[in-house]
């Protein structure tokens, strides 16, 4: 059911701790709801919305910051999920990951779009001296999954962690990250890659 080389998180947590929510049951439920949605079942999509909206809106909000724009991004993403529901392929990963990939792409698109260009300077300025990681840590809730991800993030070096969080949560390009961290571009590229490899392996092993 999972292609070789793909690390799935929910598989593991289902087998190790069935009492904690984000396991196989949630995954199976989302898979079934997506299948029903692909046949035009609006009630199924409403259930899917209820199961995922805090994560979808949370991610949109985290990346674009502005609540009104985050709402638009989340809405666009949901309409895309509905439309593309047939194209979700269980073999390629867990359904929540698939949904969040759509949300993230649209959120990043939004912060980089022309309308947002003028706000970029503000975003730079607003960064201040607190690393983004702290904000992420504050925003997370104390579930098993988030604890695992937080722990995995702490296993990274500081540059790896900052590069990854600025790119993923901040929507910054690797060039911008290089400038923000005052680290050469080549270093940023390798830190992002090394950091993701470590994150992938840590999450996979602990699952």
């Amino acid at each position: 059911m999972t292609a070789p080389g793909i690390v799935t998180i929910s598989d593991g947590s289902a087998s190790s701790s069935p009492g904690n929510a984000p396991g196989g049951d949630a995954r199976a439920a989302l898979v079934a709801l997506l299948a029903r949605s692909s046949r035009g079942d609006e009630a199924a999509f409403a259930e899917l919305y209820d199961l995922t909206s805090a994560k979808v809106y949370g991610l949109a909000r985290r990346v674009v910051r502005d609540p009104a724009q985050a709402e638009e991004v989340a809405q666009e993403a949901y309409l895309e999920v509905w439309r593309q529901s047939t194209r979700y392929d269980e073999a390629r990963g867990n359904p929540l990951a698939w949904i969040l990939t759509i949300v993230h792409r649209r959120a990043v698109d939004r912060v980089r779009s022309a309308e947002s260009a003028r706000e970029r300077d503000t975003r730079y300025a607003a960064l201040g001296d607190g690393p983004e990681y702290d904000e992420v840590a504050e925003a997370v809730t104390a579930t098993l999954e988030t604890a695992r991800v937080r722990k995995a993030l702490t296993s990274l070096t500081e540059v790896q962690r900052e590069a990854i969080t600025l790119a993923y949560y901040g929507g910054y390009t690797h060039r911008e990250v290089s400038e923000l961290l005052d680290v050469p571009l080549g270093t940023v590229k390798t830190r992002m890659r090394d950091g993701l490899i470590r994150l992938r392996d840590t999450l996979g092993v602990e699952a």
């Binding site: 805090a54 709402e71 989340a74 990963g93 999954e145 999450l203």
Partner: peptide, 26 residues
Amino acid sequence: RSFGAATASLGEVVETPAPDRLRAAV
């Protein structure tokens, strides 16, 4: 492909209750 689950788990850990009107609009 192998990074997909890792990036998605970064996304999973940020939750904010969505406004009710978003549900209605969707």
